[in-house]
């Protein structure tokens, strides 16, 4: 996965995941001393994020999207694999480099403000990362807070309020302002608009696009909604049960999906017009548990195209057309 699509900016890789894994132990007994199994939340995931571009990560609930994000944010330690930032392995580098990495990669979650101190004023909440990480005087910090609030469409008046005095959409603007505080190079967006109304959603998506154009920041966008992904992303990776099953430039993925799971996701997506013709491909059964993934291709119990070998042989990534990667025995 080394070449770039036409849509790319300068195509330089800024962040790279190589065969990342996160296995959570399932414990039992007194003091949880006995490990009875492993949840393979993320099981060998590789991708690249490029400067000024957006990589979308889609897939069903529990497939490991947020766990992947948490590893990139160093909130979870990978069980295996590596994260490269500007070509350097973040777990093997110096303490100072790791600090720099942490401030270069920021995050916006579905409702990050629910976890922040409700008694702090907005200006202090936005200033906090700068106060901790930068040696900057109070005046400079406050000036930057105003600039950031303006960037996200809020103003000075808002800086004196408390988080609960904001609507959901405004809180998401604040979260974006806070994430931008340290001039990050990458922002991980974990379902940033899922909890918002359609109209507010459009405002936030447009804002994110504008900020990307202005600051050339890269995004890793986690989303359920495929239309959101189509609107926002340069590349899309489709995850199923801890693995990436397909990865392609956004247009290619939507116009020529290859993996049966991607096809099922697309046909299950809601239409944008009552006359939209959809080829119904309704999957039966539930997403299997990552505690006990099926043998062979993880998708075979639900796959309408499954062949004999699918329940036996594991799949590996192929590149049937340039820049379009898929893990499926059909290709």
């Amino acid at each position: 996965m080394t070449t770039t699509p036409e849509t790319s900016g300068n195509g330089q890789i800024i962040l790279e995941a190589r065969d990342l894994k996160k296995h959570f132990p399932v414990t039992k007994g007194l003091l949880f001393s006995k490990i009875t199994g492993w949840i393979k939340a993320v099981d060998g995931v590789s991708f690249e994020v490029r400067v000024g571009e957006t990589l979308g990560l889609v897939g069903e609930s529990g497939c490991g999207k947020s766990t992947t994000a948490k590893m990139l944010l160093m909130l979870e330690e990978p069980t295996d694999g590596s994260i490269l930032f500007e070509g350097e392995d973040v777990h093997l580098t110096t303490q100072a480099k790791r600090r720099e990495y942490r401030s270069s990669v920021q995050a916006v979650f579905q409702d990050p403000w629910s976890s922040l101190n409700p008694r702090m004023r907005v200006r202090d909440l936005i200033a906090e990362p700068m106060v901790i990480n930068w040696d900057m005087d109070r005046g400079g910090v406050m000036e930057r807070v105003q600039k950031l609030l303006n960037d996200v469409g809020l103003n000075e008046y808002h800086s004196n309020l408390f988080p609960h005095e904001f609507s959901g959409g405004q809180r998401q603007r604040l979260a974006i302002a806070r994430a931008l505080a340290l001039n990050p190079k990458v922002i991980v967006l974990d379902e940033p608009v899922s909890a918002l109304d359609v109209s507010i959603r459009a405002q936030i998506m447009n804002l994110l696009k504008d900020l990307q154009n202005e600051y050339n920041v890269s995004y890793l966008l986690i989303a359920h909604d495929l239309a959101t992904v189509r609107y926002m992303c340069t590349w899309v990776a489709v995850m199923y049960l801890g693995q990436i099953v397909e990865l392609a430039p956004v247009k290619e993925l939507f116009e020529n999906p290859l993996h049966p799971y991607t096809k099922a996701l697309m046909s299950a997506a809601l239409p944008s017009h009552p006359d939209t013709v959809q080829d119904e491909m309704i999957l039966m059964g539930e997403v299997p548990s990552p505690l006990n993934p099926p043998p062979g291709c993880y998708f075979h119990p639900r796959c309408p195209f499954a062949m004999d070998r699918c329940s036996v042989d594991v799949t590996e990534a192929k590149e049937p057309s340039p820049q379009h990667w898929v893990s499926c025995h059909l290709y």
Binding site: A202, Q203, K209, L226, A227, T228, A269
Partner: peptide
Amino acid sequence: ASVPKMEQDVERLYSIE
């Protein structure tokens, strides 16, 4: 107009202020 569409590229979404 503020809903993105899966079947087509939209340059910019309309948004109600």
